[in-house]
Design a protein around this nucleic acid. Structure first.
Lengths: 335, 335
DNA sequence: TTGAAAGCGCTAACAG
DNA sequence: CTGTTAGCGCTTTCAA
């Protein structure tokens, strides 16, 4: 039997086999045109025979810079919300012959920092981050070395870097405006933890719209820390049993939307339901709902575009890009 | 102003700054214990002052092997089906201080091959592939060099490599058995293209179960190339209008399930609906359905486990692992 | 315990 | 058009 682990052939092996110099092989491998066709053929034959494949690690080391790799750190790889973002970045990377390394911070600032530093050690060409922490000063050195960093979905802290965010406050305000226009004044709000940036923004948007209309937000109609659909359903149940129940419910994310729809539909209540974050099967919802929608893939696309622009030498001031939201109708499937 | 792109400090820079030898810095960076504490301190101070971070590209080159990177090629990064698989592999990678490069073949064998070769040039330590093509002979050389390849969800072709698959045929047969036991004999089947491995397997499972029971499959009740929910809905509509309509529908994937439920519920028909591939919001389906379910994350977990086992020196024969499926009840939300 | 020298596989610079 | 030499930043001998 042959050796357990046949060594990978190197450029030197090919050169010896084809009886040409190392540099000639390098020229052929890199498709430089200035090589005699006969020699080129000899080299190609040797390459094929030995099963040679260039070692990009060595090439990268010599040329110094580019690993042609973008690192993406999301808060939770499991979460389907990040799928279109990652897909869009991967697609943009492909188009420039880059690859994508994906990692997750699991919402832990410490893990995020460790992962970021690890990716820098691997000399990623650029980094796109859905930040978990709010202190990114530790990135300053790296950014100064010329590696672009782009924040997506949430802003970073203590670092001038591009950020691509959703207009969460604007979307929430628009939803409330629509409810107010339809005559609702008792509007319930279902929120997850206010430590999450998007929740704070959406909450703020609600408050702004209500204040503008001179309508007070009843604290009894605000649910906090609703993490699962069941949490939301329970909160809605309680609210519907109040002496003065809400006539509309605004859901801060799609999990609370599912819980709210469950309760409202079960009771055949005519409470209006508005939610954030559309999902693939929202058409299956049994009752009509309005959803604050946006183009998640666009978040990734623009983040990648920013990263590549920086790689291409754009040294303009860091900018924050706010993506618009729009109210759409979903559900009513069971009617 | 300073230079545009401050050069990254190297180990040599640190050595000079701390007035020690290169090797001493290397020892400190790699946490070798055999270094004088005083020197260690001097080195650490210099490292911090210069903002030094080891270049893993160079380290990898010298040690020859391991980039501590797993490549994952799926058929379609957009598809939520692959999200739990990717997350599970990323998680397993993390646990061993590996990273994950994700790429998509977009169901194109050519793109798959190009991507695979590219990843090998980058010297990934292992590769997990959801294959699009059926000829993976081109991988033989690489596998011989010791880079493990694991197929997931679909088998590869022409290459002895580990594969982690679902028991598609068994799941389909179990679903049909249940319908037969409930007295159904006119069972419709909704399929996407039979070029897709999972469709062929599921189709075969249906045939086996029906033959076993001596029940004929009416060609009029088999829908092919149903790609979208609307395709499936249209096919179901046609079948329900037949002189002898089906009493049950078996859906080959979740898109056809959605289309079938749409039609059946809309008509308030009492046709039984069974589907493949559970999804997050299946609890919202207005009518009760049975779904052939499985643990998608487990696919990724086992694939990663196989890859790492091979990296750890497991040279046993390639094996194909079949993951079980189970019938679960979903929906009925609107009742 | 520390250091000098060699070299991983490749590309850049410069001759021939 | 082709080859020689040097060296990317690190780890690995092997001496001191």
């Amino acid at each position: 039997m042959a050796a357990q682990q046949p060594k990978r052939p190197t450029m030197n092996d090919v050169a010896r086999d084809a009886d040409v110099s190392l540099k000639t092989v390098s020229r052929v491998v890199n498709r430089m045109t200035t090589v005699d066709p006969a020699m080129t053929d000899r080299v190609l034959v040797s390459i094929r025979r030995l099963g040679y494949r260039r070692n990009d690690v060595a090439a990268t080391l010599r040329t110094g810079t580019e690993t042609r790799t973008i690192g993406l750190i999301t808060a939770d790889l499991q979460n389907a919300f990040y799928t279109p973002i990652a897909a869009a970045i991967a697609s943009a990377a492909r188009a420039r012959d880059f690859h994508l390394i994906t990692a997750s911070s699991e919402e832990s600032p410490d893990l995020e920092k460790a992962t970021v530093l690890d990716l820098f050690q691997r000399r990623v060409s650029g980094l796109v981050i859905v930040p978990s922490g709010d202190n990114h000063r530790y990135l300053r050195t790296e950014v100064k070395m010329g590696t672009p960093v782009v924040f997506v979905d949430r802003p970073g802290g203590g670092l001038r870097a591009d950020a691509v965010l959703l207009d969460n406050a604007g979307g929430a305000a628009a939803a409330v405006d629509e409810l107010l226009a339809a005559g609702h004044t008792r509007i319930a709000v279902l929120l997850d933890s206010l430590e999450i940036y998007t929740m704070r923004e959406r909450h703020a948007g609600v408050q702004v719209a209500l204040e503008r209309a001179g309508v007070a937000l009843d604290p009894a109609l605000v649910g906090h820390r609703l993490h699962t659909p069941d949490d939301a359903a329970a909160a809605v149940a309680t609210m519907l049993d109040l002496r003065r129940p809400p006539t509309a419910v605004l859901c801060g994310n799609n999990r609370s939307l599912i819980g709210a729809v469950d309760q409202v539909w079960r009771r055949r209540s005519d409470v209006a339901v508005v939610g954030f974050d559309d999902f693939e099967t929202s058409r299956l919802l049994p009752m009509p709902v309005r959803i604050v929608n946006y183009d998640a893939a666009e978040l990734g696309r623009i983040a990648a575009e920013r990263a590549f622009a920086r790689l291409d030498g754009d040294t303009s001031a860091a900018r924050t890009i706010l993506l618009p939201t729009e109210l759409v109708s979903r559900g009513g499937f069971a009617r």
